[in-house]
Design a protein around this nucleic acid. Structure first.
Length: 316
DNA sequence: TCAATCACG
DNA sequence: ACGTACGTGATTGAA
């Protein structure tokens, strides 16, 4: 709760101490213990049947939550390096895959147009909800639109949005209302998902994987509300998981065929990390980008950003 | 053993 | 009037 930081200097000090403590105890001190003496590498375990949406999860150690957001955290990520000077790390991540999926599934014309025109979706959303030209969107407006875009996927309320922003509850409600005015078919799609779940007891991803929602007709409004948010979120998060898994299979197949010496090392929900001999770099990049972008056809393009580096931080 | 906290998407 | 943003895993300290 950084909101109290201005009330007394000790608040900021405590928060900083906790953050340093977290980074040290969870990563800096712990990860060296996980280095396999034989391979001199850290090996994680990917679980295919843990997450309710169909995502992978990672443990022993979790390599899907390596820090990146703060400068100290970035120093941790920098420690993940290619095996020698002849190799680099390649990081390939889907751009806005969950919003593209909701645009495609809802068939909302305005959101489809934004992605088909390859617009900055958060700026485009801000322009619509605040009724200003795209070029006049302020940093603050884009930031608020971004928060709503993500919140929508989770089923945020005006209360939740007001806690997440500087907006009060009335302003947050106005923003959410303006959002649904801008993307009218989103609301329709979301209520269709909830109704489907009420009648069938489950929702499904693009590949047909189901999440059963036993509480969707609960008498308890709190429990029912959570299930309703799951009904909206699970097909989106789960379809993204389906799509990256298809991409991983295609990439693996093609790497075998060629064959490439490069290795697929990590999956972090919308990102794949590879270790690649520098000699293979250009052809591998092309393979990855094509396979990921063509893994599954939606009503909008899927786009993938690829970065290269001696370490995982630089590869972003 | 469990809840709180915080790291990630 | 009610409570109130999805999915994970690791660490910590109280019960």
């Amino acid at each position: 709760m950084s909101s109290l930081a201005k009330d007394h200097p000790i608040i900021a000090d405590i928060l900083e101490w906790r953050s340093v403590q977290k980074l040290n105890n969870t990563y800096v001190s712990a990860l060296p213990e996980d280095v396999n003496p034989k391979t001199q590498r850290i090996h994680t375990i990917y679980n295919q049947a843990v997450a309710a949406t169909g995502r992978l999860s990672s443990n022993h150690p979790n390599l899907q939550n390596i820090p990146i957001r703060t400068p100290r955290g970035q120093q941790v990520r920098k420690a993940f390096i290619a095996k020698d000077a002849n190799h680099v790390l390649v990081a390939a991540d889907y751009s806005q895959i969950e919003l593209r999926i909701i645009a495609s599934l809802s068939e909302d014309p305005n959101m489809l147009t934004a992605f088909q025109n390859n617009e900055d979706i958060h700026a485009a959303t801000a322009a619509r909800v605040f009724g200003v030209p795209l070029g006049e969107v302020t940093r603050e407006q884009r930031s608020q639109a971004k928060t709503v875009n993500f919140g929508i996927i989770y089923g945020v309320s005006a209360f939740g949005l007001s806690n997440q922003t500087t907006l009060n509850r009335t302003e947050a409600k106005a923003l959410i209302d303006a959002y649904y005015e801008s993307y009218p078919k989103l609301r329709e799609y979301m209520s269709d998902q909830v109704n489907f779940a009420r009648e069938n007891g489950y929702v499904a991803t693009v590949l047909g994987r189901r999440r059963y929602l036993k509480d969707i007709n609960s008498q308890n409004a709190i429990v029912r509300g959570a299930a309703e948010r799951n009904a909206v979120n699970a097909p989106i998060q789960g379809s993204a998981a389906d799509i990256i898994k298809l991409a991983m299979l295609r990439i693996h197949d093609r790497m075998q065929q060629e064959p490439f010496k490069a290795q697929m090392l990590l999956q972090v929900h919308d990102e794949l990390v590879f270790e690649c001999p520098k000699t293979e770099l250009e052809s591998l990049k092309k393979l990855i980008k094509t396979a990921m972008e063509e893994a599954y056809s939606l009503r909008v393009p899927l786009t993938v950003d690829i970065g290269i580096g001696d370490n995982w931080l630089e590869a972003h």
